[in-house]
């Protein structure tokens, strides 16, 4: 059977694809920054000396990690609406992605924190560093350095998962594709192009995280290796 592929009609919509890709990157960027911070706080919370805080963080992590993102998005979308808040689809999408990635980040950062040897903290105390200094220089940054590759992969997966927000009609890359394919009747070509866009975006993000690692971890050790 002869395949009749025509990418022309799809490719001439490239400005729309770029708009969608830009929103996808923005969604991923917001969720990475805010969700990453949320995950860091929750990871520290999971090691708190107060059982209530530990429990709260655990419930958050388990509730998010054991339910699909699609359902979380619907819950945030309709939950906020039934409470009387009216937010745009993009705001809801960013919020849901942030809550989602925060839980995964928590577990990754926690693994990093658990890997910091007790002796390092004692040594820092012996050098009369303050609690805040110890947390920053001895605990948090080395912990993140150790789990950096896992964090990178998680944030790339988040960017890919942001495609699900097309279901509440946030106009990101996948929603743009849905629109273009219904307009051009070239579904196969459209989704192939959009898949390649996503592959390119994941390479872009990996490159970005690699560049960031050069700034964050000036010791230039191989990332992810034991301390």
């Amino acid at each position: 059977m002869a395949l009749n592929l025509d990418f022309g009609a799809v490719l001439e919509r490239w400005p729309s694809f770029l708009d969608g890709a830009l929103l996808t990157l923005q969604l991923a960027g917001v969720a990475t920054v805010v969700g990453g911070a949320l995950g860091g706080v929750a990871a520290i919370g999971r090691r708190s000396r107060y059982p209530a805080i530990r429990r709260l963080c655990e419930v958050y992590v388990e509730a998010i990690r054991n339910t699909p993102l699609l359902v979380q998005i619907f819950l945030v979308y309709f939950g906020l609406a039934s409470l009387g808040f009216k937010f745009s689809a993009v705001t809801v999408a960013a919020l849901a992605l942030t809550i989602n990635v925060g839980a995964y980040t928590t577990e990754i950062v926690r693994a990093g924190l658990d890997a910091i040897p007790r002796g390092q903290i004692e040594a820092a105390e012996g050098l009369a560093l303050t609690r805040a200094q110890i947390y920053r220089h001895v605990v948090l940054l080395p912990a993140i350095e150790r789990v950096y590759p896992a964090l990178t992969s998680q944030f790339v997966l988040l960017m890919l998962a942001s495609s699900v927000t097309s279901q509440i009609s946030a106009e990101e890359l996948t929603a743009v594709a849905n629109y273009i394919q219904s307009d051009t009747y070239r579904a196969f070509e459209t989704y192939i192009v959009v898949a390649l866009f996503y592959v390119a975006l994941s390479f872009l993000m990996r490159g970005g995280f690699w560049a960031l690692s050069l700034v964050l971890f000036p010791r230039r050790r191989r990332l992810g290796t034991p301390l």
């Binding site: 890919l160 996948t174 849905n178 898949a195 996503y198 592959v199």
Partner: peptide, 9 residues
């Protein structure tokens, strides 16, 4: 590098 949703579509 591709979302499952796009593979589905």
């Amino acid at each position: 590098g591709t979302p499952l949703l796009v593979i589905m579509f």
